[in-house]
């Protein structure tokens, strides 16, 4: 990974309705990041984030009193510098896509190892996007139809390069490995992934809650 060591440690807030998960994640992360607070529902999450203004919020997709996207929308004005990384056990594509569309910079599953999670947090803090293999699969599915008819904007389709990068991520490659495979720099791979994230957040061609079922079976 290329994460340059930040001068100060990245501050993190954990939002998850299960105390067990919060303490588990906290101990897994150890002192690689600075956990400055946690919250168990939408209301307390908004309060904690507004107060601590962390670099990164680790956000569960499902929360009592609303969902992850509700938190992102509520604190956008209160703490504009804060970035969000979705952490989920859900395999439902709509859930993941919703929280990404709301503004999360990435999505990882709760089975992720402590090292990988710390790495993902640093990446998000630096403004990069973090795609798990599963999220890469979802996105390939969402944009599977390829470029649409004449009028479509460039937001509605992936470039061949972006597609290649996503395929490698879906195959379990790290950014570094993907860069080597495609003879690109890691920075270029990161740029491609960020661009895919932007398309995912801004494109309105796809009714994203429906494509998953539509594409599931021929």
């Amino acid at each position: 990974m290329t994460s340059p060591t930040p001068t100060s440690r990245v501050t993190v807030v954990l939002v998850d309705d299960h105390a067990l998960v919060r303490s588990g994640v906290r101990s897994e992360l150890g002192d690689r990041v600075d956990v400055v607070g946690d919250a168990e529902d939408v209301a307390s999450a908004i309060a904690v984030i507004a107060q601590t203004k962390p670099d990164v919020v680790l956000l569960d997709v499902h929360l009592p009193g609303g969902n992850g996207d509700a938190v992102i929308e509520a604190v956008r004005a209160l703490s504009p510098e804060t970035k969000f990384l979705a952490l989920s056990v859900s395999d439902a594509a709509e859930d993941v896509i919703r929280v990404i569309r709301a503004g999360a910079r990435g999505y990882v599953t709760k089975t992720i190892s402590g090292d990988d999670l710390a790495d993902a947090i640093h990446r998000v803090a630096e403004g990069d996007a973090v795609f798990s293999p599963r999220l890469a699969g979802f996105v390939l599915d969402a944009f599977a139809d390829g470029p649409a008819e004449t009028e479509s904007s460039d937001l509605d389709a992936l470039t061949p390069r972006e597609r290649e990068v996503l395929r490698l991520i879906a195959r379990g490659y790290t950014y570094k490995e993907a860069a080597k495979e495609l003879f690109l720099s890691v920075k270029t791979v990161e740029t491609h992934v960020s661009s895919v994230l932007r398309k995912l957040q801004l494109s309105n061609r796809h009714e994203l809650s429906r494509w998953a079922t539509r594409r599931r079976i021929v």
Binding site: R134, G137, D141, A144, A170, R215, R216, V218
Partner: peptide
């Protein structure tokens, strides 16, 4: 071991 499966599209 853990086997993570990601699929895009499907066929019979």
């Amino acid at each position: 071991v853990q086997v993570d499966v990601v699929t895009v599209g499907d066929v019979p």
